[in-house]
């Protein structure tokens, strides 16, 4: 369970988030959507404990978020931040040394699913395969919360598709909450339980996706177009 209560975040004079209230419940795949600079990444970083709210409170499973929240939150950055001279295998070993809950067996299972070679060096991997590896490292942790910042960004359709299938295959919706920011709404249209729209630092909508379809005959793209106007 993630709760943001009256959260604001300023960078200098720039307001990144403005009085945000949000409650996300476990067992769901939730999409955080909005244009560039709307506050998506800031929201994720606040939940991951990588950044602190200027005002308000962020809690994960009742616990107030600090850097220590990394024990129960897996965070996938939108940046390529792994050591380029590592092999795939070494990256897995490294991640495993950093997190007690890292499940190596699961990591190799996802690796196989993503058709990655453990002996390849990261600097020789294509952008798509680096994207796949990030998914491996992020999903192999047994944690209640998984945060993914733009996992599809800049990747070709084949890779995006393998990431979608990877998510369906390896997240445990009995226990885990997955929050994902993305521009590629069509990619996630069929896999999201809920969608949260954010604009200029404010949450402008939060819906169960199947309810949108049932009650308003709208897909996520239609709904986004409506609320964003």
């Amino acid at each position: 369970m993630i709760t943001l209560t009256n959260v604001s975040k300023r960078y200098g004079t720039k307001k990144a988030l403005d009085h945000v209230n949000l409650e996300l419940t476990p067992g769901k795949l939730i999409g955080l959507v909005g244009e560039n600079g709307s506050g998506k990444s800031t929201t994720l970083k606040l939940i991951a404990g990588l950044n602190h709210p200027t005002n308000g409170e962020v809690r994960v499973n009742g616990e107030k978020v600090t850097r220590k929240i990394a024990d129960s939150v897996s965070y996938l950055s939108e940046l390529d931040e792994y050591y380029r001279f590592f092999t795939v295998k070494r990256s897995i070993e490294f991640q495993s040394s950093q997190f007690k809950d890292f499940d190596k067996e699961k990591a190799y299972e996802i690796l196989k699913f993503m058709k990655l070679d453990p002996n390849d060096k990261l600097k020789h991997l294509s952008k798509g395969n680096r994207g796949r590896l990030k998914i491996v490292l992020s999903l192999a942790r047994n944690v209640p919360v998984i945060l993914m910042d733009e996992p599809f960004s800049g990747l070709d359709p084949m890779v995006r598709n393998s990431i979608v299938k990877g998510l369906i295959s390896f997240i445990d919706l009995e226990k885990q909450l997955v929050l994902i920011t993305t521009h590629e709404i069509r990619e996630v249209e069929n896999i999201l339980d809920e969608v949260v729209a954010i604009k200029a630092g404010s949450i402008i909508g939060h819906h169960n996706v199947e309810e949108l379809r049932e009650q308003k005959q709208m897909g996520i793209v239609d709904w986004m177009t409506e609320v964003y106007e």
């Binding site: 369906i168 069929n190 896999i191 339980d193």
Partner: peptide
């Protein structure tokens, strides 16, 4: 879910 690329909850 994997076959049709749909959320297992659905």
């Amino acid at each position: 879910g994997i076959e049709v690329s749909v959320n297992p909850n659905t």
